[in-house]
Design a protein around this nucleic acid. Structure first.
Lengths: 170, 170
DNA sequence: GTCAGTTAACCGTCCAGACGGTACAGTTAC
DNA sequence: GTAACTGTACCGTCTGGACGGTTAACTGAC
């Protein structure tokens, strides 16, 4: 909606990703977004509201990605694996930030992540028509995300995952 | 070594896993270990020392697991996948705690995780003799860990991963 | 055999700074 | 005039860490 609101969420996510939950203080977020603390609290009256705004952003980006996955010319599975390594995009940033937030606030925070996972699985199953294979593809994608989240570089992961997918399909 | 030292590390890991880095304060760790704050700081003179103690514990448990993996009768790959879902054991707890810690402290904290990953990969490769397959198995294991870390329940993940592994072997 | 001295293991309190949040009086752009 | 801010000054609480005790086991001298 508002440009400042988006800048604040960008800054919040950026701090969460780069330096973790401890670094994502209200002062730090405001400073990173080049907004005063009062300005931040104008848009998000509390830190919980800021976290909820982040979850809403993730839900929107996630829904868009599920739609793009179903429409992908290379197929849902390949699209999914490819996206799992392409860290740096808006969805990846939102996902990593949400995972970081979920570690503290428990249930309601993971609900968005849970539902998104189910939707991704459904899209994979629709294309692959094989529950175990769909599950395996999703797990490999999760693994690549996991490595991205923890900062672990894993060269060749995408190629090998795609190669294994091809074997299983063939 | 010391029983109190171990209790402190247990408490530290427990808080990191259940409520995240923000909850794992010196006071909270001391209280959970039923030790005074002064007692905690006797064993670990700073919070950084506490985190390093945790990493050292992970390195020890990890080395033991790699050895157990190579000696597993069901094979390294099956052992690895099975262990990836068995959350609650000492190694899993240490791993999750280390991942949480790594989000803040950056490079040197991820070094232990990085090296452990390489060792696991080597053990998988030694059994499977197939780089892409070894990589895929590791990614599926990572994915299951990732879900355990974020509190996502994923029933049937192990069975499906093992089924896919059997297909790829056969 | 006992008794001062040492040391490891731990307790409880204090403090400066950071944190989330409040309050509110201005300012700018439309 | 109203929405969207800025800037400053606060408040109460929490946090990491410093610090000065305390206790109990051990050690050697006499």
């Amino acid at each position: 909606m508002s440009a400042t609101r988006d800048r604040l969420l960008d800054a919040f996510e950026g701090l969460l990703i780069a330096h973790g939950v401890r670094a994502a203080t209200l002062d730090a977020v405001a400073a990173a977004a080049e907004v005063s603390k009062g300005g931040l609290l104008y848009h998000f009256p509390s830190k919980a509201a800021l976290a909820q705004g982040q979850r809403e952003r993730l839900a929107e980006l996630g829904a868009a990605d599920v739609a793009a996955m179903a429409a992908a010319p290379e197929g849902a599975a390949e699209y999914y694996l490819r996206e799992s390594t392409a860290s740096g995009g808006p969805l990846d940033r939102a996902l990593i930030a949400a995972v970081r937030l979920a570690e503290e606030s428990g249930d309601d925070a993971t609900a968005v992540l849970d539902e998104l996972r189910v939707r991704w699985y459904d899209a994979l199953l629709a294309e692959l028509q094989d529950p175990a294979l769909a599950h395996a593809v999703q797990l490999m994608g999760d693994g690549m995300y996991y490595n991205a989240v923890t900062g672990i570089r894993d060269p060749g992961a995408l190629e090998d995952a795609l190669a294994v997918l091809a074997r299983l399909r063939g």
